[in-house]
Design a protein around this nucleic acid. Structure first.
Lengths: 155, 155
DNA sequence: CCTACATCCTCAAGTAACTTTAGGTTCAAG
DNA sequence: CTTGAACCTAAAGTTACTTGAGGATGTAGG
């Protein structure tokens, strides 16, 4: 019953105002009340609903998944076990992404380390590290055999 | 000098043919030769270049960053230290994302665990776990106090 | 040589989840 | 009563592609 305008709702939920309008447009927020001057008015219910939506989005759920979750919360006949299952499914995806990202982190770190070790100041076209990228996986290479090393720069 | 057609190049580099055409369109692949019948022909140089691009993309570099890296490799006056710096910058972003994702994983896992512990079979609207999502951070709650628990389902 | 059929071509539109821009109205303060 | 912040709608832009339509070309078998 706080009767917020869109700016206040935006601040309370950490959402941009256009995003809030967008959520309304795609039917995530249901119908919203209006003031005399056609400006949107939001209630506590709306605050809770948008908070829920934002949290789900932070959790990495897609808009469609959030739509399902919102329906779930609204529907008296639904079971929260369903929500659990959605979350479980999503957890698996997150863990896969996590694994990928870890591998990525190692690769880039290795790339940077290789640059530091064997390619300081070398020229682009002859750089052995850049060359690696055009071939197989970037991997730790022996620092001594490079064409451009600290002791023999290639430019 | 292998004179590949787009399909072969696609297979060799793990790229869809339309994506290759798209890269050409946005200027990532430069100008490509054509056969008599107007079909694209690719050389070993193209294979290397596309491989480089794909690897960079796998590394999570944006198209614009890849464009910079490609220019870097092409430019005889450039230094590979520049590439290192781009990578270093990207590494920081990846690590930030990694941290976020780890927190996310913990949150979702906690959510699922909470569901299992205190909300099995409960109805959506009354589910304390779903309710959590509309409030503060999801956190470990005491399993005994929930309104819908294994021993007292709420539907 | 002719017929399938795979592969290629271009151009246009679709995708997710918003953000940005343009041009105009309304509200709150002084 | 005026000024400036906040609001409104509608449309286009963003990223990195993917998908689809409709037609041309290349190749293998008969």
């Amino acid at each position: 019953m706080s009767n917020l305008k869109i700016g206040a709702l935006a601040r309370q939920t950490g959402t941009n105002a256009p995003t809030i309008r967008y959520y309304e447009e795609i039917g995530l927020l249901g119908s919203v009340g209006r003031q005399a001057g056609n400006q949107r008015v939001y209630s506590d219910t709306d605050v809770r609903r948008l908070t829920f939506i934002r949290r789900c989005r932070e959790f990495g759920f897609s808009i469609d998944q959030v739509r399902a979750l919102v329906a779930l919360v609204q529907d008296p006949a639904s079971s929260c076990v369903h929500a659990r299952d959605l979350a479980q499914e999503h957890l698996i995806a997150v863990r896969a992404k996590l694994t990928e990202l870890k591998a990525l982190e190692r690769s880039i770190a290795a790339f940077v380390a290789n640059c530091d070790a064997s390619c300081a100041g070398g020229a682009g076209p002859d750089c052995v590290i850049l060359e690696d990228l055009t071939k197989g996986r970037t991997q730790t290479r022996n620092t001594s055999g490079g064409r451009c090393s600290k002791t023999s720069a290639c430019s």
